[in-house]
């Protein structure tokens, strides 16, 4: 089921949606958004791509199985929680860098936690959807 229109649109939409998801992820602390929604939007981007181009080409594009996103994201989230232990603060205290970065703004360990959530959500969603579409 290949529709040229959808295929062309999906190819352009994928990078745009991914960018948008990162944008949503980053603005989460001040405006509506965050890792969870960002992750879902990124998953939708890949799902759209796979609907248009077939599952195999999306997998080839991803290079790694989406399953690997999960442990990776979980580790980032946990490490960001563990980081404060090294400076003597309790587990999961948010640490902040002193100076804001250009474009992104002030960075704290909460951002890394959110990035972890983002990756886990992508991994979980894609794993579930890919597995189901492969096996039904």
């Amino acid at each position: 089921m290949k529709i040229i229109l959808l295929k062309t649109a999906a190819n352009y939409l994928l990078p745009l949606l991914l960018l948008f998801s990162v944008f949503i992820l980053l603005r989460g602390h001040y405006e509506p958004g965050g890792g969870f929604v960002g992750g879902l939007i990124a998953s939708i981007a890949f799902i759209l791509h796979s609907l248009a181009n077939g599952l195999d080409s999306t997998k080839a594009l991803l290079k790694y199985s989406p399953f690997y996103f999960i442990p990776f994201g979980l580790s980032i989230a946990i490490l960001s929680g563990l980081a404060p232990l090294f400076v003597g603060e309790p587990f999961m205290t948010v640490l902040w860098f002193e100076n804001p970065l250009p474009v992104i703004g002030l960075i704290g360990s909460a951002l890394f936690f959110d990035i972890g959530v983002y990756l886990v959500v992508i991994g979980v969603t894609l794993t579930i959807l890919f597995t189901i579409s492969e096996s039904v």
Partner: peptide, 20 residues
């Protein structure tokens, strides 16, 4: 939490354990 989006600050900071 140094954030203006309360929902997100709850998710990643106040109730970060839950999210984890």
């Amino acid at each position: 939490g140094k954030g203006k989006n309360v929902v997100n600050v709850i998710l990643v900071d106040f109730r970060g354990y839950d999210t984890l």
